[in-house]
């Protein structure tokens, strides 16, 4: 044991006598690098993509993102704000993990693929967006503002020939570990008016797991809407 020790000791000394070899990322066990990187704020994390190709792939892979996300939910939530005045559709996020960093934690981001949209909901840093070309628009997409990835979703199944109005919710199912989009649909004579809401319309619920091709109809609802002025909230798997 000792002789091995001596040998390694010597080679180490040789390195020290000349130019001290710098410790590079290759010397650090992967686990340590991941731990360090996952403690960074979103803003700093986004930048590691520019370091080199290998890190770009690392930042796109699920492992680092999951680790970072776990840390975020424990310590540092993040808000996403949408501003419509004075300029429409200005989006910001507040990066609380960056609050100790000496700059403003409010950052602007844009959704390049969509000029006009409403935020249906947000969950685990993902946004569910609806094209707001018309109030009754059914086109949805899931957007990750930090990676720029987005996924277009199919439109809800039409129940009849009449125009449909949908109210959407977006959330994460903790048991199946899947994201779900819920739509509550009803027929409308004039889809631009929400007046119909207060009458006894039949409401139907549909569920979509992003990634699958079609909505699943889950049946009629025994309740009516109270009003549509506040956005629906998906809480613990239930749309309120």
């Amino acid at each position: 044991m000792d002789s091995v020790c001596e040998k390694q000791g010597k080679s180490h000394k040789l390195g020290k006598d000349g130019d001290a070899p710098k410790i590079t990322i290759e010397c650090l066990p992967r686990e340590i690098s991941f731990n360090i990187l996952s403690s960074l704020s979103i803003t700093s994390l986004a930048k590691i993509k520019f370091v080199c190709r290998a890190w770009c792939n690392l930042a796109k892979g699920p492992h680092l993102i999951n680790m970072h996300f776990l840390r975020m939910t424990e310590n540092d939530p993040c808000f996403i704000l949408q501003q419509d005045y004075p300029v429409q559709d200005q989006n910001y996020f507040v990066d609380f993990s960056a609050r100790n960093e000496s700059y403003k934690a409010l950052k602007k981001f844009c959704v390049p693929s969509m000029p006009k949209f409403d935020i249906v909901g947000s969950c685990n840093g993902l946004l569910c967006l609806r094209y707001s070309s018309s109030p009754a628009s059914h086109s949805l997409c899931i957007y990750n503002p930090f990676t720029g990835d987005y996924l277009k979703l199919p439109e809800p199944t039409k129940v009849s020939h009449k125009e449909m109005v949908n109210v959407f919710g977006f959330g994460f199912h903790p048991t199946t570990k899947e994201y779900k989009v819920i739509a509550i649909c009803f027929e409308s004579e004039n889809s631009l008016l929400y007046r119909d809401l207060y009458t006894d319309k039949e409401l139907e619920a549909q569920v979509l797991t992003p990634g699958s091709s079609a909505w699943r109809r889950v049946g009629k609802l025994p309740y009516n809407f109270l009003g549509l002025w506040s956005s629906p909230i998906l809480l613990n798997g239930r749309l309120h």
Binding site: K22, I23, I25, L28, S44, I48, V51, A98, N100, E101
Partner: peptide, 13 residues
């Protein structure tokens, strides 16, 4: 945190 990409590169070699 909040350092330039160049700094991060230098840090990790």
């Amino acid at each position: 945190k909040n350092k330039s990409v160049e700094y991060v590169r230098a840090f990790f070699g």
